[in-house]
């Protein structure tokens, strides 16, 4: 019962795919997501095996007595999921939310870093 009530409540908000950048740097992969209006408490990041799911809610209070003049954005639920490659060290994934941008740092696992193979003389 309560589960269906929660589901109906969630469905009220339109789902938005947040704009995302995926960048590779020397120390790993970085994912940046624009999630304006989402507070740290409303952001959920789930890592399940190879799947990262990011969801967050942006809700704006509308005090009584305010007349709306022009609207271009509104309440919404951001949702996006990624599949993480095996090169990523899943234990060291870091996330930070600054000014409405979520930064996920996915460091590469030690073993996938390039290394020279020494040739042994026989």
């Amino acid at each position: 019962m309560s589960e269906t009530a929660v589901k109906r409540d969630e469905r009220k908000l339109p789902r938005v795919k947040p704009a995302t950048d995926v960048i590779e740097k020397e120390d790993g992969y970085y994912i940046y997501m624009d999630m304006p209006g989402v507070a740290k408490e409303d952001l959920v990041i789930d890592l399940n095996e190879d799947d990262i799911r990011v969801s967050g809610k942006a809700e704006y209070e509308a005090p009584a007595g305010r007349k709306i003049g022009h609207v271009e954005f509104g309440n919404g639920e951001y949702f996006r999921s990624f599949t993480v490659s095996h090169q990523v060290d899943k234990d060291r994934i870091k996330a930070s939310l600054v000014n409405g941008v979520l930064e996920l740092h996915l460091p590469k696992a030690e073993k996938s870093q390039p290394r020279k193979i020494t040739i042994q003389q026989g």
Binding site: G65, R66, K67, G69, V71, F73
Partner: peptide, 9 residues
């Protein structure tokens, strides 16, 4: 950027 405008008294 997208913007919203509202007003009260």
């Amino acid at each position: 950027p997208p913007l919203n405008i509202s007003e009260d008294d």
